[in-house]
Design a protein around this nucleic acid. Structure first.
Lengths: 163, 163
DNA sequence: CATATTGCCGAAAAAAAATCGGTCACAGCA
DNA sequence: TGCTGTGACCGATTTTTTTTCGGCAATATG
């Protein structure tokens, strides 16, 4: 119990978060360990919840999504039911890839990935602004992504006790 | 040439962006095709750039990163060299996972994933605010993630011609 | 001192990926 | 009509990877 990953585990995580297709054999040779040893560690990292899944990364532009918007939303009322009602609606919108409840000036920040400005306008007018309890919507548009890390920085990470 | 994915391809992409470990056999049985057929399609989707990679998804909380901040930055001057200089510096900060050049009120929006508020304060004071040409920095803190889709919505996607 | 426990390893079995050859349907064309 | 290239598909086979298994050595545990 109370497993804490060591340096080897962090290396494995770093390799897999960069390229999940790296074989155990390849990892083993890079780290100077046996295939079985790597296998066991990966299974443990999965079981302990350090690795939550494996996904293919798709190219949005190839799939008709060229516009990214960050949209902040302020609600009229902040009662618990109102908040969870809003969150539920947001969950049903496939254009919204991420939603954060925020501290400060507004209540939610939504990351929206969508075909183009015309499609965004439709989403804004027909879906987002029609939700109940909306007070303010402010749209921020991405001109270009200048950095996109899929993974966490593990070099700098100071680990909490195996949680 | 000029390959455009069909419905079967989109289903494959949807399956793989949800779980990249799904075997060709499993996909084949779900879609009523042969393993070889699925294999060929996946290879083509990779070759044509629809799939850009495979990554393991890690649990930030387990790895000592519990705080997410969205930080907007406004620069003093917008000359080309100034912009690319800023972007280069940002690229060297492992705490910054994503950086967007924005239209509107400010110039850049940074997604920062870091241990805690104390670490954020250090990052802000010692790294971000010390960059040249900075005019305004505004930090927005995430209370909770209410939605996190790793993948694009492919149901609604209207595809551009094979690009 | 005996005995779990842990990390590690190589060999072998099971499963998956990758290759190969071939069928079928269809479009274009003389 | 008949020929031909093309593309999607398939089964069988080979290659590679994953997974299982048993065993060894170091280290703690009582």
């Amino acid at each position: 119990m109370s497993f804490t990953p060591d340096m080897t585990d962090l290396c494995i995580l770093d390799i897999l978060q960069t390229d999940a297709r790296t074989t155990n054999k390849e990892i083993a040779s890079r780290l100077g360990k046996s295939v079985t040893s790597i296998f066991d560690r990966v299974k443990r990292l999965e079981a302990e919840g350090y690795i939550t899944g494996y996904v293919a990364v798709l190219n949005p532009a190839k799939l008709g999504s060229t516009l990214i918007a960050y949209t902040s939303v302020t609600l009229e009322s902040h009662g618990h039911d109102k908040l969870s009602g809003f969150e539920q609606k947001i969950n049903s919108f496939p254009e919204v890839l991420e939603s954060y409840k925020m501290s400060g000036q507004f209540d939610y920040l939504l990351k929206i990935v969508i075909a183009d400005m015309e499609a965004y306008e439709l989403f804004y007018s027909n879906k987002l602004s029609k939700l109940e309890n909306i007070s303010k919507i402010r749209s921020l548009f991405v001109l270009s992504e200048t950095k996109k890390e899929t993974g966490l920085s593990l070099k700098t990470a100071q680990l909490p006790k195996g949680r």
